[in-house]
Design a protein around this nucleic acid. Structure first.
Lengths: 335, 335
DNA sequence: CGCTGAGCTTGCAACGTTGCAAGTGATGCT
DNA sequence: AGCATCACTTGCAACGTTGCAAGCTCAGCG
């Protein structure tokens, strides 16, 4: 079915090379020949074989985006931004999810198995650390996303988690809240996001001369709605429940919100809530969610830019960029 | 950097072909030779070149999933299911979004431009119709998803939209609601989902001997939260607002919910709400959302199965499958 | 009239892999 | 000893494309 250059060449009565010249719009082709070849191309419905081109040229025009979970809104929204940025530069994005499984992460990133047909890789690791990444066999450029600290060697775009968490907590302090809880702490070595945000939470409390109450800091296994709902239930079961909660992402906050409202409590009157990520859901919840909003477009833009620079042969030292963020104040803290 | 078979062969002092035999675990290699080659492979960190393999074998192990919008939860959740199903069969999924833009849809589906390196395609069209699809130049198998009616020629997995909408509306009738509205009707030729669901809505009302009140059927441009919020505001501005609303997807319902609650009205006491898609958001909203739940795993499973059958040379007539669905009854209709 | 060069076209080789069929040398059998 | 057999190894060609350099034809010029 798929016509090749050779078939077109035979039909047009020219050499394969000339057909290629027409397809690639090279100038030194006689107009009459060009027309004849073009007709043959049209008649056969010729489509260049991308695989052969890639093999020949060493470029596929594909970059891979490897994320923990596609159906987490933050990643879905980030993916959209990356696709848009890459498309502008003429690249197509291939998305894959790892579920944070180290085996799968390694498989996808090392590309030992199949389909190493990407020019570059944008990767948000959950489990893989610096050591794993540094001795990749492949030489495909990589840009890292996210909080997992990787000790150099690769371009990396992150968020100042400590600062952002401090900002969120300060906001709650500024509202005069007395017992501010945190949901989303993590002990796991490989999941640093939670720990960093807890640092920021502590910093804000200490700067305000407040004591950190350990039972108000709730760890969760994941950052999903269900985890937030469960953690909030635990907090409400305390002898002295909190009057404010900083959730380490919006899904946790939405889960917590559900628990609070289902107990007949009011947000923010009884409990103020702050989330993190600024996903669309939080803008339409009732009450809408105050949240730390990382600049996703900026993250995507920088990630794609760094990657394409590497593809263009940029050999400079690896960059580490911090993305901007703002605090979006909505109903869950201000009524 | 990336070692080739030739380099490994030189180092091991054997032919390229023998190295290939070792890499592919062919049996007729002497143990001693195998060991020597294996050592050379390890030392050089050989990774097979997937592009060359694809060119040679005619199979990439990649299937493309082309969707309107990745950050719409329904599609994100469906994507997860497709990735899981494909992984089981040893295939990797490449995801791309079209934004429903006909130009982009055509570009991606026809693969005139780049990267036609997929063995098959699972495609949820918004704009493209049967005619466009039938004369694709490529012979890559395609499985269609979604409601857009395509007049044969391709495998197609759909939902019985009319029946599902009828079920949802009947549920509201069964609650004794008197003025049942609908949000999400569409006039646009290319977007059939809305029209089909309106048919089901009409059918249920008529079967119950109710009159269809035109002003209660609200069209929307998209199926996003903002559209639902705006349409609900219009409904509430009517002289006689509805006491129940069937929204054609969950995002519309969540937007509508936001509007209702922000006016101080109660759900379901004042207005009952039903959505469509059963996305996770709707399970954690307050109140949680009654919704039509299509079996996404089944859809993904069938889509992947049909596609892989075609890849295995199945020449039978195109199949049209309807996915199962259920009505998930939650707080937004039962308190 | 032969040479130069412009204008256009072409053959070869290579990207890295694997199917095919043929090759090698040693062993076993008669 | 001669031949078949076996176990293993190898060279060639091809997948479809494009860079390179050489080839061809013809016009123009001295």
């Amino acid at each position: 079915m798929a016509a090749t250059l050779r078939q077109v060449a035979e039909r047009a009565g020219v050499s394969v090379r000339t057909v290629s010249n027409v397809v690639n719009d090279f100038p030194q082709v006689a107009p009459e020949t060009r027309a004849r070849v073009q007709q043959a191309l049209d008649e056969l419905g010729y489509q260049p074989n991308a695989v052969a081109r890639t093999l020949r040229n060493g470029r596929s025009g594909l970059i891979a985006l490897v994320l923990p979970e596609l159906d987490v809104p933050y990643f879905a929204e980030l993916t959209r931004a990356v696709i848009e940025q890459a498309a502008e530069a003429g690249y197509t994005v291939v998305v894959d999810q790892t579920d944070g499984d180290p085996v799968r992460e390694r498989e996808l990133v090392m590309r030992g198995n199949r389909a190493a047909m990407f020019d570059g890789l944008i990767f948000n690791p959950l489990a893989l650390g610096g050591a794993d990444l540094r001795n990749r066999p492949s030489s495909t450029p990589v840009v890292l996303l996210g909080e997992r600290v990787v000790e150099g060697g690769l371009d990396h775009i992150m968020i100042d988690n400590v600062g952002a968490a401090e900002l969120a907590t300060r906001h709650l302090l500024g509202l005069g809240r007395q017992r501010i809880a945190a949901i989303g702490d993590q002990f796991d070595e490989t999941r640093q996001t939670g720990q960093l945000r807890t640092q920021g939470y502590h910093a804000a409390l200490q700067a305000a001369g407040r004591e950190v109450v350990p039972e108000l800091v709730r760890p969760t296994e994941f950052f999903h709605r269900a985890d937030g709902a469960a953690a909030m239930a635990d907090l409400l079961a305390l002898p002295q429940p909190p009057d404010a909660v900083f959730c380490y992402n919006d899904l946790l906050a939405l889960g917590a919100l559900r628990t609070i409202l289902s107990r007949g409590l009011r947000v923010p009157d009884d409990i103020a809530l702050v989330g993190f990520d600024d996903i669309e859901d939080g803008r339409y919840s009732t009450p809408s969610l105050t949240t730390v909003s990382p600049d996703k477009t900026q993250i995507a833009k920088n990630a794609v830019r760094l990657l394409l620079n590497r593809l263009d042969g940029d050999q400079s030292a690896p960059t580490r960029l911090s993305a901007d963020y703002t605090l979006e104040i909505r109903e869950s803290t201000t009524g």
